[in-house]
Design a protein around this nucleic acid. Structure first.
Lengths: 127, 127
DNA sequence: GTACTGTATTAGGAGATGTAATACACCCAT
DNA sequence: ATGGGTGTATTACATCTCCTAATACAGTAC
Protein backbone atom coordinates (compact mmCIF):
# COMPACT_ATOMS: atom_id res chain seq x y z
CA UNK A 1 0.00 0.00 0.00
CA UNK A 2 2.87 2.39 0.81
CA UNK A 3 6.21 2.70 2.56
CA UNK A 4 7.27 4.32 5.79
CA UNK A 5 10.67 5.62 6.76
CA UNK A 6 11.69 4.70 10.28
CA UNK A 7 14.75 6.95 10.10
CA UNK A 8 12.78 9.99 9.03
CA UNK A 9 12.76 11.84 12.34
CA UNK A 10 9.03 12.22 11.91
CA UNK A 11 7.09 9.69 14.03
CA UNK A 12 5.79 6.65 12.16
CA UNK A 13 2.19 7.26 13.21
CA UNK A 14 2.35 10.79 11.77
CA UNK A 15 3.81 9.54 8.50
CA UNK A 16 1.00 7.02 8.36
CA UNK A 17 -1.60 9.73 8.99
CA UNK A 18 -0.11 11.83 6.20
CA UNK A 19 -0.12 8.94 3.74
CA UNK A 20 -3.71 8.05 4.55
CA UNK A 21 -4.86 11.67 4.32
CA UNK A 22 -3.12 11.90 0.96
CA UNK A 23 -5.02 8.83 -0.27
CA UNK A 24 -8.29 10.33 0.94
CA UNK A 25 -7.57 13.74 -0.59
CA UNK A 26 -6.72 12.10 -3.92
CA UNK A 27 -9.81 9.95 -3.59
CA UNK A 28 -7.94 6.69 -3.81
CA UNK A 29 -9.78 6.06 -0.57
CA UNK A 30 -13.34 7.36 -0.89
CA UNK A 31 -16.22 8.12 1.42
CA UNK A 32 -17.15 5.10 3.56
CA UNK A 33 -14.38 2.90 2.12
CA UNK A 34 -12.98 0.57 4.73
CA UNK A 35 -9.38 1.07 5.77
CA UNK A 36 -7.05 -1.91 6.27
CA UNK A 37 -7.52 -3.45 9.70
CA UNK A 38 -5.01 -2.57 12.36
CA UNK A 39 -3.52 -6.06 12.53
CA UNK A 40 -3.32 -6.59 8.77
CA UNK A 41 -1.67 -3.23 8.19
CA UNK A 42 0.74 -3.87 11.05
CA UNK A 43 1.78 -7.11 9.37
CA UNK A 44 2.19 -5.54 5.95
CA UNK A 45 4.23 -2.59 7.20
CA UNK A 46 6.12 -4.67 9.76
CA UNK A 47 5.35 -2.28 12.58
CA UNK A 48 3.51 -2.63 15.86
CA UNK A 49 -0.32 -2.69 15.91
CA UNK A 50 -0.30 -0.05 18.66
CA UNK A 51 1.35 2.40 16.29
CA UNK A 52 -1.38 1.87 13.70
CA UNK A 53 -4.00 2.26 16.36
CA UNK A 54 -2.51 5.56 17.43
CA UNK A 55 -2.64 6.88 13.86
CA UNK A 56 -6.22 5.69 13.36
CA UNK A 57 -7.37 7.11 16.67
CA UNK A 58 -5.84 10.47 15.85
CA UNK A 59 -7.39 10.49 12.38
CA UNK A 60 -10.73 9.71 13.97
CA UNK A 61 -10.49 12.51 16.51
CA UNK A 62 -9.48 14.83 13.66
CA UNK A 63 -12.63 13.77 11.80
CA UNK A 64 -11.01 12.15 8.76
CA UNK A 65 -12.28 8.65 9.52
CA UNK A 66 -14.88 7.04 11.73
CA UNK A 67 -14.58 3.82 13.71
CA UNK A 68 -17.15 1.08 14.21
CA UNK A 69 -15.85 -1.14 17.02
CA UNK A 70 -15.80 -4.74 15.90
CA UNK A 71 -16.25 -3.75 12.24
CA UNK A 72 -13.39 -1.50 11.22
CA UNK A 73 -12.30 2.02 10.27
CA UNK A 74 -13.92 3.93 7.41
CA UNK A 75 -13.33 7.14 5.46
CA UNK A 76 -15.52 9.96 6.80
CA UNK A 77 -17.40 12.29 4.44
CA UNK A 78 -15.11 15.32 3.89
CA UNK A 79 -17.96 17.73 4.49
CA UNK A 80 -18.30 16.47 8.05
CA UNK A 81 -14.98 18.17 8.72
CA UNK A 82 -16.42 21.60 8.02
CA UNK A 83 -17.17 23.67 11.11
CA UNK A 84 -15.07 21.39 13.30
CA UNK A 85 -12.14 22.06 15.57
CA UNK A 86 -9.94 20.64 12.81
CA UNK A 87 -11.08 23.30 10.38
CA UNK A 88 -9.90 25.98 12.77
CA UNK A 89 -6.50 24.30 13.05
CA UNK A 90 -6.18 24.05 9.29
CA UNK A 91 -7.08 27.72 8.89
CA UNK A 92 -4.41 28.71 11.37
CA UNK A 93 -1.81 26.51 9.72
CA UNK A 94 -2.78 27.91 6.35
CA UNK A 95 -2.38 31.51 7.56
CA UNK A 96 0.99 30.74 9.04
CA UNK A 97 2.38 29.01 5.94
CA UNK A 98 0.94 31.61 3.58
CA UNK A 99 2.56 34.41 5.59
CA UNK A 100 5.86 32.59 5.54
CA UNK A 101 5.65 31.93 1.81
CA UNK A 102 4.89 35.57 1.03
CA UNK A 103 7.68 36.70 3.38
CA UNK A 104 10.39 34.77 1.56
CA UNK A 105 9.24 36.25 -1.72
CA UNK A 106 6.97 33.63 -3.27
CA UNK A 107 4.58 35.54 -5.51
CA UNK A 108 0.81 35.65 -4.97
CA UNK A 109 0.24 34.49 -8.50
CA UNK A 110 2.32 31.38 -7.97
CA UNK A 111 0.06 30.54 -5.06
CA UNK A 112 -3.05 31.15 -7.15
CA UNK A 113 -1.60 28.77 -9.72
CA UNK A 114 -1.01 26.17 -6.98
CA UNK A 115 -4.61 26.39 -5.87
CA UNK A 116 -5.93 25.92 -9.39
CA UNK A 117 -3.57 23.01 -9.81
CA UNK A 118 -4.73 21.30 -6.63
CA UNK A 119 -8.36 22.31 -6.69
CA UNK A 120 -9.61 20.02 -9.48
CA UNK A 121 -7.51 17.19 -8.12
CA UNK A 122 -9.37 17.36 -4.83
CA UNK A 123 -12.70 17.20 -6.60
CA UNK A 124 -12.33 14.77 -9.48
CA UNK A 125 -9.54 13.02 -11.41
CA UNK A 126 -5.78 13.35 -10.98
CA UNK A 127 -4.71 14.07 -14.55
CA UNK B 1 9.32 40.23 24.43
CA UNK B 2 6.91 37.26 24.45
CA UNK B 3 5.76 34.25 26.42
CA UNK B 4 6.40 30.55 25.97
CA UNK B 5 4.27 27.67 27.19
CA UNK B 6 6.27 24.86 28.73
CA UNK B 7 3.18 22.66 28.94
CA UNK B 8 2.35 23.10 25.27
CA UNK B 9 3.57 19.73 23.99
CA UNK B 10 5.43 21.63 21.29
CA UNK B 11 9.15 21.92 22.10
CA UNK B 12 10.22 25.25 23.56
CA UNK B 13 12.85 25.84 20.86
CA UNK B 14 10.19 25.41 18.16
CA UNK B 15 7.81 27.79 19.91
CA UNK B 16 10.66 30.27 20.08
CA UNK B 17 11.40 29.84 16.37
CA UNK B 18 7.73 30.43 15.56
CA UNK B 19 7.54 33.58 17.67
CA UNK B 20 10.72 35.00 16.15
CA UNK B 21 9.59 34.20 12.60
CA UNK B 22 6.29 35.89 13.38
CA UNK B 23 8.13 39.03 14.51
CA UNK B 24 10.23 38.99 11.33
CA UNK B 25 7.23 38.41 9.09
CA UNK B 26 5.35 41.26 10.74
CA UNK B 27 8.49 43.37 10.48
CA UNK B 28 8.73 44.05 14.17
CA UNK B 29 12.20 42.67 13.63
CA UNK B 30 13.61 44.02 10.39
CA UNK B 31 16.50 43.23 8.07
CA UNK B 32 19.82 43.26 9.92
CA UNK B 33 18.24 44.02 13.28
CA UNK B 34 20.08 42.33 16.09
CA UNK B 35 18.26 39.63 18.02
CA UNK B 36 18.51 39.42 21.81
CA UNK B 37 21.68 37.64 22.86
CA UNK B 38 21.38 34.02 23.89
CA UNK B 39 22.21 34.68 27.52
CA UNK B 40 19.97 37.74 27.87
CA UNK B 41 17.00 35.98 26.31
CA UNK B 42 17.60 32.91 28.48
CA UNK B 43 17.41 35.13 31.55
CA UNK B 44 14.26 36.93 30.42
CA UNK B 45 12.40 33.75 29.48
CA UNK B 46 13.81 31.77 32.42
CA UNK B 47 14.95 28.91 30.22
CA UNK B 48 18.32 27.36 29.51
CA UNK B 49 20.75 29.12 27.13
CA UNK B 50 21.24 25.85 25.24
CA UNK B 51 17.57 25.87 24.27
CA UNK B 52 17.88 29.38 22.84
CA UNK B 53 21.01 28.37 21.01
CA UNK B 54 19.21 25.44 19.42
CA UNK B 55 16.43 27.73 18.15
CA UNK B 56 18.91 30.29 16.79
CA UNK B 57 21.03 27.65 15.12
CA UNK B 58 17.99 26.15 13.43
CA UNK B 59 16.77 29.58 12.30
CA UNK B 60 20.20 30.23 10.86
CA UNK B 61 20.32 26.96 8.94
CA UNK B 62 16.82 27.72 7.66
CA UNK B 63 18.10 31.08 6.42
CA UNK B 64 15.97 33.39 8.56
CA UNK B 65 18.87 34.85 10.49
CA UNK B 66 22.64 35.02 10.20
CA UNK B 67 25.21 34.70 12.95
CA UNK B 68 28.37 36.69 13.49
CA UNK B 69 30.42 34.86 16.14
CA UNK B 70 31.37 37.22 18.91
CA UNK B 71 28.85 39.83 17.73
CA UNK B 72 25.39 38.32 17.72
CA UNK B 73 22.48 37.08 15.65
CA UNK B 74 20.79 39.25 13.03
CA UNK B 75 17.70 39.14 10.81
CA UNK B 76 18.57 37.94 7.31
CA UNK B 77 17.16 39.69 4.22
CA UNK B 78 13.98 37.79 3.30
CA UNK B 79 15.00 37.64 -0.35
CA UNK B 80 18.03 35.56 0.59
CA UNK B 81 15.56 32.77 1.41
CA UNK B 82 14.43 32.56 -2.20
CA UNK B 83 15.87 29.62 -4.13
CA UNK B 84 16.97 27.91 -0.93
CA UNK B 85 16.24 24.48 0.46
CA UNK B 86 13.81 26.21 2.83
CA UNK B 87 11.76 27.53 -0.07
CA UNK B 88 11.26 24.00 -1.31
CA UNK B 89 10.09 22.91 2.14
CA UNK B 90 7.65 25.81 2.38
CA UNK B 91 6.27 25.03 -1.07
CA UNK B 92 5.66 21.43 -0.08
CA UNK B 93 4.04 22.43 3.19
CA UNK B 94 1.89 24.93 1.34
CA UNK B 95 0.71 22.34 -1.18
CA UNK B 96 -0.14 19.91 1.60
CA UNK B 97 -2.13 22.39 3.67
CA UNK B 98 -3.90 23.82 0.63
CA UNK B 99 -4.97 20.34 -0.48
CA UNK B 100 -6.22 19.59 3.01
CA UNK B 101 -8.12 22.86 3.22
CA UNK B 102 -9.81 22.31 -0.12
CA UNK B 103 -10.61 18.70 0.82
CA UNK B 104 -12.56 19.64 3.94
CA UNK B 105 -14.56 22.14 1.94
CA UNK B 106 -12.91 25.49 2.52
CA UNK B 107 -13.69 27.59 -0.56
CA UNK B 108 -11.04 28.88 -2.95
CA UNK B 109 -12.35 32.41 -2.54
CA UNK B 110 -11.87 32.29 1.20
CA UNK B 111 -8.24 31.43 0.57
CA UNK B 112 -7.88 34.28 -1.92
CA UNK B 113 -9.26 36.59 0.74
CA UNK B 114 -6.74 35.24 3.24
CA UNK B 115 -3.87 35.97 0.87
CA UNK B 116 -5.03 39.52 0.26
CA UNK B 117 -5.39 39.97 4.00
CA UNK B 118 -1.88 38.72 4.73
CA UNK B 119 -0.12 40.04 1.67
CA UNK B 120 -0.01 43.74 2.52
CA UNK B 121 0.92 42.91 6.08
CA UNK B 122 4.05 41.16 4.92
CA UNK B 123 5.05 44.14 2.80
CA UNK B 124 4.19 47.26 4.76
CA UNK B 125 2.00 48.27 7.68
CA UNK B 126 -0.26 46.13 9.81
CA UNK B 127 -3.50 48.10 9.63
C1' DG C 1 -18.25 -20.97 18.89
C1' DT C 2 -14.91 -19.16 15.66
C1' DA C 3 -12.73 -15.62 13.53
C1' DC C 4 -12.59 -11.48 12.43
C1' DT C 5 -12.76 -6.43 14.06
C1' DG C 6 -11.24 -2.38 17.58
C1' DT C 7 -9.81 -1.23 22.61
C1' DA C 8 -7.04 -1.12 26.73
C1' DT C 9 -3.24 -2.02 29.86
C1' DT C 10 1.35 -2.83 31.36
C1' DA C 11 6.27 -3.02 30.66
C1' DG C 12 10.55 -1.71 28.71
C1' DG C 13 14.08 0.40 25.44
C1' DA C 14 15.65 4.17 22.35
C1' DG C 15 15.74 8.77 21.29
C1' DA C 16 14.40 13.78 21.81
C1' DT C 17 13.99 17.62 24.94
C1' DG C 18 15.45 20.56 28.39
C1' DT C 19 18.54 21.64 32.30
C1' DA C 20 23.08 22.40 34.27
C1' DA C 21 27.81 23.37 34.59
C1' DT C 22 31.94 24.38 32.11
C1' DA C 23 35.27 25.68 28.89
C1' DC C 24 36.68 27.87 24.70
C1' DA C 25 36.94 31.46 20.97
C1' DC C 26 35.66 35.77 18.81
C1' DC C 27 34.72 40.96 18.84
C1' DC C 28 35.12 45.40 20.82
C1' DA C 29 35.91 49.23 24.03
C1' DT C 30 39.03 50.83 27.32
C1' DA D 1 46.34 43.48 26.87
C1' DT D 2 42.32 43.20 29.93
C1' DG D 3 37.39 42.80 30.69
C1' DG D 4 32.96 42.05 29.30
C1' DG D 5 30.14 41.20 25.93
C1' DT D 6 29.10 37.76 22.08
C1' DG D 7 28.46 32.73 19.99
C1' DT D 8 30.19 27.68 20.28
C1' DA D 9 30.91 23.12 22.15
C1' DT D 10 30.92 19.34 25.42
C1' DT D 11 29.41 16.36 28.99
C1' DA D 12 26.05 14.63 32.25
C1' DC D 13 21.51 13.87 33.80
C1' DA D 14 16.19 13.78 34.32
C1' DT D 15 12.07 13.55 31.84
C1' DC D 16 9.14 12.68 28.18
C1' DT D 17 7.68 10.72 23.67
C1' DC D 18 7.78 7.12 20.43
C1' DC D 19 7.74 2.50 19.51
C1' DT D 20 7.70 -2.25 20.55
C1' DA D 21 5.88 -6.32 22.94
C1' DA D 22 2.77 -9.25 25.12
C1' DT D 23 -1.75 -9.72 26.81
C1' DA D 24 -6.43 -9.43 27.76
C1' DC D 25 -11.00 -7.73 26.82
C1' DA D 26 -15.15 -6.41 23.92
C1' DG D 27 -18.02 -5.82 19.73
C1' DT D 28 -19.57 -7.97 15.02
C1' DA D 29 -20.55 -11.52 11.71
C1' DC D 30 -21.05 -16.16 10.15
Amino acid sequence: MFELDVQNGKPIYEQLMDKLKELMINEVLQEHNQLPSIRILAQELTINPNTIQKAYKQLESDGFIYTLPGKGNFVAPPKSLKNSLKEEKIRNELSRVLAEALYIGIDKHEIYRLIKEIGPLAKGGDS
